[in-house]
Nucleic acid binder design. Structure first.
Lengths: 219, 219
DNA sequence: GTGTATGAAATCGTATACGATCCAGTGTGA
DNA sequence: TCACACTGGATCGTATACGATTTCATACAC
């Protein structure tokens, strides 16, 4: 059956936001969106409520919804949360990653490594997403998996800000990917994989914090 | 200004679910709830969408919403997620817990200890919630704090199931609380506090898993 | 020039209405 | 007795309508 209009509205807006068509601060006007979707405002309101609960938009009474605006604090909090959640997801997922998937991840990382020579931030980010998804996708805990997805969605809001690219970090990142893959391949203890995956992300965060003369994350 | 009807509906339903008035499996009929609130179905639908995004209710097209039903898998996943998130929240919160709050936490734990002699599961659970809240409430990362709250809300759904009480666990729990308090008081490294707080919860989970002849959580 | 009143336009919030869908109970034929 | 079509009631999904609120531009007073 065709999805409900509320569902369509949700998917459309979700995609627009995470793909970057609606950037932070963008005003979501009910009537406009409804007209574009060819439906009334009621389903659109429902869709926006869901996006609000996911932290992608803020909703103010009698004023309306806007895509959440990014700043240093949001970046810190989002990245820190993702580090914790994705670390756990990767560790829990590890036992279910088979040889083929490991090889696929290595291949992706290889392309990332080659990309260092002729750097393309957008492509690098895409590949990075793919790489990590291979590693955490088998996490058997659906709540944690869901939180990882939400974390990535929130991170996608940072796309166009200055947070994305820190000199030298890409090269380190590729190396750390290797180490994580080695741990998974060696069937290292979950705690060790968690630690490596979390640290990988925390280092990116701390690199930014250091650049902004802020103290490093304690975790 | 008076809260919007949508907001009121959300709060009412949220409270009913977390306080246990609406138990798992309870059917949320739009018209009925709307009539009770003295409003139309539109705000109620919005409220339910928010609850759905928080994982408190499931919503099926053309059928309606029901409070999520609990089972062993849900307990495992919820508890495991909470262990990870609350561990991090407690560690991040620790530097901001002052002497007075530590004393308050010790006092709560003392009452819990006394309660062991004449056990009252409901009261014990209440006190346990209070105790932990004191420890994680200063977590400076609002996303993590939010996830802790959501985790607790989901745990509250398990209230009436057989998961709550495992013989001997209450006594161990009180001791572990002491250890966590000591670490915080001693200004132990964040990683150490995180580990202790997470393990505290994971042990409860593993006690249940062991009783059900299931393998322990790897984290 | 600055600040405040005012009104119109934009937008939101929710009631109401009605078609669409699901479900349970009934009847019918094999 | 069983399988299946049918039907009425319950409930959902969404369009429409309209009052309430905010916003912003304009005009006016000081």
């Amino acid at each position: 059956m065709a999805p409900s209009k509320s569902e369509s509205a949700y998917r459309l807006l979700h995609e627009r936001i995470t793909e970057g068509a609606f950037t932070p601060g963008y005003r979501l006007v009910l009537g406009t969106i409804a007209a574009e979707l060819g439906c009334s405002v009621v389903p659109v309101r429902e869709a926006i409520r869901r996006l609000e609960a996911e932290g992608l938009v803020t909703f103010e009474r009698n004023v309306g919804a806007t895509v959440v605006t990014t700043d240093a604090a949001l970046y810190l909090h989002t990245m820190q949360t993702l580090a914790i959640i994705e670390g756990a997801a990767t560790a829990l997922s590890a036992p279910f990653v088979d040889a083929g998937q490991l090889a696929a991840a290595r291949a992706i990382n290889q392309i990332m490594s080659e990309l260092l020579l002729d750097f393309d931030a957008t492509r690098f980010t895409e590949l990075n997403n793919e790489f990590h998804q291979v590693l955490y996708q088998h996490c058997p805990n659906p709540h944690i998996l869901d939180l990882v997805h939400r974390g990535w969605n929130r991170m996608s809001l940072m796309r166009s800000s200055s947070f994305t690219h820190i000199p030298g970090r890409a090269r380190e990142s590729v190396k750390e990917h290797e180490q994580i893959l080695d741990l998974i391949e060696a069937k290292a203890p979950a705690a060790e994989i968690e630690q490596a995956a979390r640290a990988h992300r925390t280092r990116t965060l701390n690199a930014y914090l250091a650049a902004a003369s802020l103290p490093a994350s304690p975790l």
